[in-house]
Design a protein around this nucleic acid. Structure first.
Lengths: 109, 109
DNA sequence: TTATTTAATCGTAATATTACGATAGAATAA
DNA sequence: TTATTCTATCGTAATATTACGATTAAATAA
C-alpha cells in the first residue's frame, strides 16, 4: 500500500516519526550539516556542494521545510535556507526525552 | 527512481540517515515506546497492542532489527524483542552531537 | 528591452515502502 | 501422533520516494 495508517497513532507519535523521517536520507543530513557548518545558506551553494541535481535538492529542501526544520528566505534571485530555531529545539527536546526514557535497567533479555 | 545514491555520501551520513529512517514511522515509534514502557517484550503482546496486522508488525520489527536498534530472542514458540543497549547508546551519542553542533549564534537569516 | 541567473515546479521512470492475507515452520500441548 | 500456538516469510496491491531533465517564473544585469 505504501500508505501509513497515521490515524491509528497519536499526534505525538506521528510528529516524532515525521521529524525522524525528514532526517532519514543522507542528502538531507548533508544539507543540515552544510547549513550548520558553512557560513552560507544560499540554495545554489548547497547544490554545488552536494552530488545531486538542482531539482532533486530542491525537493529535499522542500521536505525539510515541510516539517519545519528549515525555513527559506527569498532574497532577490537567490533563496537563503536556515535552520528554524524553534523546531530545532523541539526536535532536541523530543530526542532527549525519548532517549532518556530508556534505561538499561529496564531490559529484559 | 526511489533509489538513494548512498555511495555519494559518507558512511557516517548514511548511518545517521539509516537510524533516523528506522524511527521514521509511527508504528516503529510505538513499538519502541512499548518496549521501553512495558515489562513485556513478547512479539505477540506488541501485535495485540498495535492497530496493525501481525505480518505488518513483523515487517516493522525486522526493519528495527536490521539497523540494530532492537534484537530478537527466540524463546520456545515466542520471540522476545529488546532494545540493544549498544546501538541505543550509539544513537544517543549521535543525536547529542548532531543537535549540539548547531547553535543559534550561527544563524544567518 | 532582452538576456541571464536562480530556484521552484512539472512530468516521468525506477525503486521502495506499507499493509494485508495466506502460508510455512518450529515449538509446545493434548 | 496430532493439534495448536506463535511468528517469519511470501505474494501482491496501492502508494510513496528518489532522481533527473525540462520548463517556468521571478529578479537582476546588460
Amino acid at each position: 500500500m505504501g500508505i501509513t495508517k497515521t490515524k491509528q497513532f497519536t499526534k505525538i507519535q506521528n510528529r516524532k516519526a515525521e521529524l525522524y523521517k525528514a532526517l532519514g536520507h543522507p542528502a538531507r543530513i548533508a544539507i543540515i550539516e552544510f547549513l550548520i557548518n558553512q557560513d552560507s545558506c544560499v540554495c545554489g551553494d548547497i547544490v554545488n556542494e552536494l552530488p545531486l541535481s538542482q531539482s532533486t535538492i530542491s525537493q529535499h529542501l522542500k521536505e525539510l521545510k515541510n516539517v519545519g526544520i528549515i525555513k527559506g528566505d527569498i532574497e532577490g534571485v537567490k533563496t537563503c535556507y536556515c535552520i528554524d530555531d524553534k523546531v530545532w529545539a523541539e526536535f532536541d527536546d523530543m530526542c532527549r526525552l525519548f532517549m532518556s526514557s530508556y534505561s538499561e535497567k529496564s531490559k529484559c533479555c
